[in-house]
Simulated assay, not measured.
Amino acid sequence: MFKVSLFSNKKALERFALFQLAVIMITILCSYKIAYAYTHIIEQNLILNILFGVIGFVVVAVIHEFIHNLLFRGFSKGNKPIHRFHFGIISTHMPNVYFKKWQYAIIMLTPLVVITTVLSILFLFFSYSSLIFIGSFHIGYCLLDLYFVMGVLNNKVKYIEDTEEGLIYYTESPLQEVQSETK
C-alpha cells in the first residue's frame, strides 16, 4: 500500500498549479496552430477569449465532476461520492470504496475523452477562438485526473481508494493489507 496525498502538501499543490498553467498555455498555442491548418477561426479579442473561456470552463468543470459522480456511483453500486473544494479545485472523492485499476482509470479518463470530443465537434461547427480557451482550460484541469491515473500504470497496484486527502494504492486486496498490518 502506498499513498499519494497531493491535497495535504500546499507546496506540491502550488507547483502542480503552475504546471497546469504551463500546460494550458502550450495547449492554447498548439490548438491555434492545428485549427489554423484546418479551418478559419472566428477570432475574438483576448478579453472575450478569457472571459468566455473562464465562464465556459466553469460550466465544463461542473459537467466534468458530474461525469465523475455518475461513474463513481455506478462502479460503487450506488454509494454517494463526496464533493470538496480545495484551493480553487472542485474534486469528487469516494472514501471507503475500493476500485479495480480498470474501473478507476475509466472514472478518471471519461470526462477528458467525452468533454474534449464534444468541444472538438462544437469547434467544427462554431470555430470561435473562445472554444479553444475552454478546451485548453479543461485539459489543464484534467491533469489532476491524469496524475492520479499514472499510479494505476504500476503493475503492483491492484485496488485504489480515492480519499479526501488523496489516493491510496493497494498492492493486494485491502482486507488482506488490513489483516497484515494488525499482526
Score class of each variant (00 low, 15 high):
Met1Val: 12
Phe2Gln: 10
Ser5Thr: 12
Ser5Met: 09
Leu6Ala: 02
Ser8Arg: 03
Lys10Arg: 15
Lys11His: 05
Leu13Asp: 01
Leu13Ala: 06
Glu14Ile: 09
Glu14Asn: 05
Gln20Ala: 11
Gln20Ile: 07
Gln20Met: 14
Leu21Ile: 14
Ala22Phe: 14
Ala22Glu: 02
Val23Met: 08
Leu29Asn: 07
Ser31Trp: 03
Lys33Asn: 10
Lys33Asp: 08
Ile34His: 11
Ile34Gly: 07
Tyr38Ile: 13
Glu43Ala: 14
Glu43Tyr: 07
Asn45Thr: 12
Leu46Met: 12
Leu46Val: 13
Ile47Gly: 02
Ile47Arg: 03
Leu48Gln: 09
Ile50Tyr: 10
Ile50Asn: 09
Ile50His: 08
Ile50Pro: 07
Leu51Met: 11
Val54Leu: 15
Val54Met: 14
Val59Lys: 09
Ile63Ala: 14
His64Met: 08
His64Trp: 11
Glu65Tyr: 05
Leu70Tyr: 01
Leu71Pro: 00
Leu71Ser: 02
Leu71His: 00
Arg73Tyr: 02
Arg73Phe: 04
Phe75His: 04
Ser76Leu: 11
Gly78Leu: 08
His83Cys: 04
Arg84Leu: 13
Arg84Cys: 06
Ile89Lys: 05
Ile90Leu: 15
Ile90Pro: 05
Ser91Asn: 13
Ser91Ile: 13
Ser91Thr: 15
Thr92Met: 10
Met94Val: 05
Pro95Thr: 08
Phe99Pro: 05
Lys100Met: 14
Lys101Pro: 06
Trp102Gly: 02
Tyr104Leu: 11
Ile107Gly: 10
Leu109Pro: 01
Thr110Pro: 00
Leu112Arg: 01
Val113Leu: 15
Val114Tyr: 02
Val114Asp: 02
Thr117Gly: 00
Val118Cys: 13
Leu119His: 13
Phe125Met: 04
Phe126Ser: 05
Tyr128Ile: 03
Ser129Val: 06
Ser130Trp: 15
Ser130Glu: 04
Phe133Met: 06
Phe133Ser: 00
Ile134Asp: 09
Ile139Ser: 01
Gly140Tyr: 08
Leu144Ala: 13
Tyr147Phe: 07
Phe148Trp: 05
Val149Arg: 06
Met150Lys: 12
Val152Ile: 14
Lys156Leu: 12
Val157Lys: 04
Lys158Ile: 05
Asp162Thr: 10
Thr163Cys: 09
Tyr169His: 06
Tyr169Lys: 04
Glu172Ser: 14
Ser173Ala: 09
Ser173Tyr: 03
Ser173Asp: 11
Gln176Ser: 14
Glu177Met: 05
Val178Met: 15
Val178Ser: 14
Gln179Pro: 03
Glu181Arg: 13
